[in-house]
């Protein structure tokens, strides 16, 4: 599988990253190698195995629908880069 400059630009765009021309070339090369490495997994024979998205044999991990106290807002807002004390403040969002 070949990773093109266009692929890198697309992923950078989705990730909201501005990359220079040189960076795009570099990442294209790196990602090509990473994918080639990961593709080794395709060589494993999985005939007769059930398809699964998970490594653990665990399922139905549920929680009861019981209200627990929420977090203190002041503490939450301490994690916000910018807040007015009651809400997160962000640059204007225009749709």
């Amino acid at each position: 599988m070949e990773i093109t400059k266009k692929d890198i630009e697309h992923i950078a765009n989705l990730s909201m990253l501005n990359l220079s021309e040189d960076e795009v070339d570099g990442y294209a090369k790196d990602m090509q190698e990473i994918i080639a490495f990961a593709n080794q997994i395709n060589e494993i024979n999985t005939d007769g195995l059930e398809e699964s998205a998970f490594a653990l044999d665990s399922y139905n991990v549920f929680r009861k629908d019981e209200v627990r106290e929420s977090f203190d807002r002041e503490l939450l807002m301490q994690n916000a880069p910018s807040s007015n004390g009651v809400a997160y403040q962000i640059p204007p969002v225009i749709e």
């Binding site: 929680r63 019981e66 209200v67 627990r68 106290e69 929420s70 977090f71 807002r73 939450l76 807002m77 009651v86 809400a87 997160y88």
Partner: peptide
């Protein structure tokens, strides 16, 4: 376990 109640002061039903 945060409540789903409608309304409420901003960011008080959060964790």
């Amino acid at each position: 376990g945060c409540t789903t109640e409608f309304g409420g002061d901003p960011n008080t039903h959060c964790c």
